[in-house]
């Protein structure tokens, strides 16, 4: 069927049935090349590398499940998993609540584009910029936050170099960068809630809190679920902030999974083991996605 282009002119009446295979293949060629070479192929080779010992200097040698056996017995891996989970919990917990509050405030107060733009500003700078700025703002000796804490009468806090504080600090820095963006996503969801519901509720005498609990929250739930899936997956892949600020320290207290993977691959050249670690992360992310997808599906009945 090589008549794709000619048939257009010769038989315009049969256009609807026409088969565009040739053109379609041409049109999807660049994207398919990218997909196959830089997404599908790495997926397969990544799995393969995780079953080998591979130092990049020598070709990979097959070791079967050895890397996974090692991983299960690796205290650093379990520690970094724990650190990552704590990070995600703080990051997502605070970020979702703050973003929800901002979104509701915007919904109830103003539709101003200027305000929404300002709220989005932190999202425009890179994680690296955010990290360096907060490295300075939260510096133990000269940081403005500690100056303020001392002025109020507290002891200065070593945000970046205390094992207790470092993960909450990284989590909150990333909340700063992402809260506006998340708020705008939720805000878009809020806009789909018809205003007459609020008007009706108000004539019934409902207060803001009641309206939030009985109207906003239930109707926002599908969007909230979607936003949660997205932000949690993103959150699990935290790296930039840690890499720029603490490199995983002090004493592995901020060694999140991606930091550990990067260390293994680029500081110790253990690509095989690093690949096994990323498979572990992939599995975790898949489990979370499916669990959340399933839960949001389960909750969808009362939403439309």
């Amino acid at each position: 069927m090589s008549t794709a282009t000619t048939s257009t002119r010769s038989a315009p009446t049969r256009r609807r049935r026409k088969d565009d295979t040739k053109l379609a293949l041409l049109f999807i060629a660049p994207a398919s090349f990218g997909l196959l070479v830089f997404l599908v192929w790495p997926l397969l080779t990544g799995l393969y590398y995780s079953l080998t010992e591979y130092t990049t200097l020598t070709p990979p040698s097959w070791v079967g499940l050895e890397n996974y056996r090692r991983l299960l017995a690796d205290p650093v891996f379990w520690n970094s998993l724990k650190v990552t989970v704590v990070y995600v919990a703080i990051n997502i917990g605070v970020q979702t609540i703050v973003a929800l509050v901002i979104a509701v405030l915007m919904q109830r107060l103003t539709q101003s584009t200027v305000l929404r733009s300002l709220v989005l500003a932190p999202y425009l700078v890179s994680n690296v910029v955010a990290a360096i700025v907060f490295l300075w703002i939260l510096d133990t000796q000269l940081g403005i936050v500690n100056i303020f804490l001392q002025w109020v009468g507290f002891d200065p806090v070593s945000f970046w170099s205390s094992e207790t504080w470092v993960i909450p600090t990284v989590a909150l820095v990333n909340v700063w960068r992402h809260m506006g963006y998340t708020a705008l996503l939720l805000f878009a969801g809020l806009q789909s809630i018809p205003t007459f519901l609020y008007e009706a509720a108000r004539t019934e005498g409902a207060g803001e809190i009641t309206m939030f609990r009985r109207i906003t929250l239930p109707l926002l739930r599908p969007i909230l679920a979607l936003v949660l899936i997205m932000t949690i997956i993103g959150s699990f892949q935290v790296f930039d902030t840690v890499s720029v600020t603490t490199q995983g320290g002090p004493a592995d207290a901020s060694k999140v999974l991606q930091m550990y993977i990067y260390d293994k691959a680029f500081a110790q050249y253990e690509f095989g083991y690093a690949s096994a670690l990323s498979v572990a992360l992939l599995v975790i992310l898949m489990v979370i996605t499916f669990a959340q997808y399933w839960m949001s599906r389960a909750g969808q009945s009362d939403l439309d």
């Binding site: 997404l39 192929w41 790495p42 997926l43 990544g46 997956i233 691959a265 992939l282």
Partner: peptide, 19 residues
Amino acid sequence: FLGSLMIPQIFTLLPNFIL
């Protein structure tokens, strides 16, 4: 194509680096 949205970046980084 849609399914590839599910592949997290981390997973493709190392193999892509080797490539």
